[in-house]
Structures are given as C-alpha cells and as structure tokens.
Amino acid sequence: MKSVTDETFNADVIVRSATLPVIVDLWAPWCEPCKSLTPLLESVVASTNGSVELVGVNIDESPQIRETFQVQSIPAVYAFKDGDVVNGFMGAQGEDAIKKFVDGLLPSEQDKIIEALLSEGSEESLSEILVAVPDHEEAVIALAKIFAESNRSDEAIAILKKIPESGETRRIVALARTGDISNEEIIRKLDSLLETVSENEDDRKQYVDLLDVLGPDSEEATSYRRKLASILF
C-alpha cells in the first residue's frame, strides 16, 4: 500500500482518481482495528489486478488530510473517482463487506462495452451507445463532432440537445454552422465582421460562432471578445 501525505494527496488521490478508482485508508500506528483492516483491504484490492488502487494515510503525520476529512475515529476508508468521494465506511469490516465495497467501484459489463465502443469512435459505435444511454455525454459530443465535420450541421445541433450546454457543445454548434475553418481564416473573418457587427445581427451571430470555434481558452477569442464589447457597449 502506497503511503500518501498532505503534500502528495492531490497527485496520488485527486488526480490519479481521474484514471481509476483510488481507495484511501486513514489509519494510525496506535489503532488496533487498523492493523486488521489494512491487510484485508490490500488483499481485496490486489485481486482487482490494478483496476483499483489503495493508498494509506497516517493521520498523525498528515494533519491537513485529517482536518479535511474531519476524522473522528479510525479506521476510516474513502473511495475516490474523478476527484470526488463516491463511497466510504468507518470501523473494521469483514472480507465480504470489503469485497462488496471494492466491487462497487469496478466497471459494470455495460461500462466495459461502452468503453470499447467509445474507443472505436465510429458513427455506428457511438450511435449504439446512445441507444442504451441516450444522454451519454462523451458519446453525444463525439458523434456531434462527426456530424459537424461531415457538414451534417442539423444533426450535430439536434443531438447536442440531449446534454447540458457547455463550452464544448457551443464550440461544436459553432463549428457545425461555420464549417471546417482554419484559425487564420477565422481571424480574417473576425477582422472583417468587426466593421458590421454593430448594425447587422446576422454578422454578429457569425462573429460569436467564430469565437466559439476558437474555444473559451483561446487568447485570440478573448482579444476579439474585448473588441466586440468595445464596439457594442
């Protein structure tokens, strides 16, 4: 079992749990129940063949972690996925209970099938996912990109309505409207549209679409948003 401290918790638990589930075992050298629980955790986690990781935190040496979890008693065990606690328990547990706890972190058969279909990434495989899970966000976005890049803008826009709006969905909608376009061409069009955006609503919509294609983290998009604001306001 890997030891985690205040300094390494973020990398070894929060970041790592984006890749696979991480179980955190909070213990201390003076805790007798911890001495029987930890070997059981190690054995059950080892049986997952690397699908789940186990780390240990000596709360006497990691006051920040102890404070974060507001530890009242140990052993205390927490499971993380994607940076969040998804399950946990306190006190000593038997092997059957621990196995059930760990099994609950493993992907289901459907999850495995979906992962394989996502990896394939074809229109057919992504559509198959959406038959089973109509609002599967990753599949919706991937399929919308395929539609947008093949000039099927109506289909791209329609399928994105299955999931909440985000910066990425807005970018794909904008891509569907504008077509495949290079950054250089986007900048040229933005410069041209600046002359008419204050008076022409269609040009203003096209301008915003081009900003969305650049993406929310683009420095160029930030600069041209400021230019638009200075003209309109």
Rank of each mutant, 00 (worst) to 15 (best):
L143A: 09
D203S: 15
K99L: 06
I159K: 01
D103P: 10
D203V: 07
M1L: 11
E185L: 12
V55N: 12
L211P: 10
V57H: 04
D217Y: 09
N151P: 00
K81F: 03
W27C: 02
Q110W: 00
E67L: 12
E220I: 15
V55D: 13
T169G: 00
M1N: 08
I187Q: 07
E115R: 15
A148P: 00
V140G: 00
E32G: 12
I157A: 02
S218R: 03
T48G: 06
N49R: 11
A142M: 13
L211I: 14
T48E: 05
L175F: 06
E155D: 15
E95F: 02
Q206Y: 01
R204L: 15
V15D: 13
K161C: 01
A156H: 04
A28I: 06
E201F: 14
A144N: 02
L117M: 13
G167L: 04
K100W: 00
T48Y: 05
L118T: 08
H136N: 12
V57T: 05
E165G: 00
D82K: 15
I113T: 14
V140E: 03
E137V: 07
L160H: 02
L106H: 09
A148E: 04
D96H: 08
E53P: 00
V22W: 10
D60C: 03
L126C: 10
S73R: 02
A139P: 00
R152N: 12
P134E: 04
S182C: 07
C31Q: 06
E149T: 10
D103K: 05
V140R: 02
T222S: 15
L190S: 05
T196Y: 08
V55T: 10
N58P: 00
A79C: 00
E67M: 14
S153V: 03
E123F: 08
K162D: 01
I186H: 08
I186A: 08
S122P: 03
E138V: 12
S218L: 05
T222Y: 11
Q72M: 15
Y207H: 11
G104L: 02
K112A: 09
P29C: 03
L190A: 07
R152W: 06
A28T: 06
E195W: 02
D209F: 07
G88I: 01
I74C: 10
G94I: 05
V55M: 13
K2M: 15
S119W: 03
P75C: 06
E115M: 12
A148F: 04
E109R: 05
G50E: 07
R152G: 03
C34W: 05
E185T: 14
I172C: 01
Q110P: 13
S51K: 15
S3C: 09
P75K: 03
V173D: 01
V213W: 05
L26Y: 03
